[in-house]
């Protein structure tokens, strides 16, 4: 017993050495800048918490925070509703069809983000394909405002986030023994009861880790809200960019970034507490 440990330990130490480059990279380009930003948020324009006070007290910034959480929440909810059937289909479909579906889901992830967002602009605008089609069939007399507002941001982000929700849910329900669902059916459960009482509860860890990932990514999203959103529903990342780039207000921008980081870490801690280590994210 002890000899195996003696053999295993040096090998483990050798393994830890390999993470050094990544560690250095993260330290130099993430931890240090974050620390610097944090320090600027409490030192500019003068020492103190005035930046945080301003962020939390002002109605303008409160609205941005609210809007950020609203978009992230909406996107998470809609993505989960759309992703669950897709994940289930991936599990039960014949191999070839499932492979095709998988490719479609992943393909969107591998296409350039900016290109995809511009494509949505083309589709969603006043004279875009969607509005023209709707008007042609007489479903609406005037173009529906689908872009430069909450609708546009939500549609664009749900589309981008879908794979991040599908994969963890798929990872969890793939491991559920189909015989358990057969047992539920023989016990008298209708399809809906089997879904609500067995499949969904068993899929909770996957849904939770997918939801956390999508929510957190949505909180800090920049490109899609900037292109598809309007000025009246600005999100936090846009505000930070504006503060830093246009107004050169590093203090306020840093404070907002720090609040975002704290919210993210708290959510992660909460999930660890409630569900345990996220599964199926690998």
């Amino acid at each position: 017993m002890s000899s195996t440990f003696a053999l295993a330990r040096p090998r483990m130490r050798k393994g830890t050495g390999m993470i050094l480059p990544a560690l250095v990279l993260l330290l130099a380009f993430f931890v240090v800048p974050v620390a610097l930003l944090l320090s600027r948020s409490v030192t500019e324009p003068e020492l103190g918490l005035q930046n945080y006070r301003e962020l939390l007290a002002s109605g303008t910034y409160a609205k941005i925070f609210f809007n950020t959480f609203l978009v992230a929440g909406l996107v998470t909810l809609i993505t989960a509703l759309l992703a669950f059937p897709v994940a289930w289909a991936l599990v039960i479909m014949p191999r070839l069809l499932a492979g095709l579906l998988f490719a479609i889901v992943l393909l969107s992830m591998w296409t350039n983000l900016l290109a995809r967002t511009y494509a949505w602009m083309v589709l969603l605008q006043q004279t875009g394909l969607i509005n023209r089609t709707l008007m042609q069939f007489g479903l609406t007399s005037e173009p529906i405002p689908l872009v430069n507002n909450l609708t546009g941001v939500t549609i664009g982000m749900v589309y981008i986030m879908l794979p991040f929700m599908v994969l963890p849910i798929y990872g969890v329900i793939r491991k559920i023994d189909p015989a358990i669902l057969q047992a539920a059916a023989l016990c008298g459960a209708t399809r809906l009861q089997a879904l609500g009482r067995v499949l969904l509860p068993l899929a909770v860890p996957g849904i939770a880790s997918g939801a956390l990932m999508v929510f957190v990514m949505s909180l800090g999203y920049f490109v899609t809200p900037a292109l598809l959103g309007g000025t009246s529903n600005m999100m936090l990342a846009e505000m930070i960019a504006q503060q830093v780039q246009s107004l050169v207000n590093w203090g306020l921008g840093g404070a907002a970034a720090f609040i975002l980081l704290v919210v993210t870490l708290s959510l992660y801690a909460l999930q660890l507490r409630l569900i345990g280590e996220p599964k199926g994210t690998a």
């Binding site: 015989a179 358990i180 057969q182 059916a185 023989l186 068993l202």
Partner: peptide, 18 residues
């Protein structure tokens, strides 16, 4: 199946784990 009212014990363990 769900209306046949038949009872079944499977080869694999099929208790609802949650």
């Amino acid at each position: 199946s769900h209306k046949r009212n038949i009872g079944m014990v499977f080869q694999r363990y099929t208790l609802f784990p949650h």
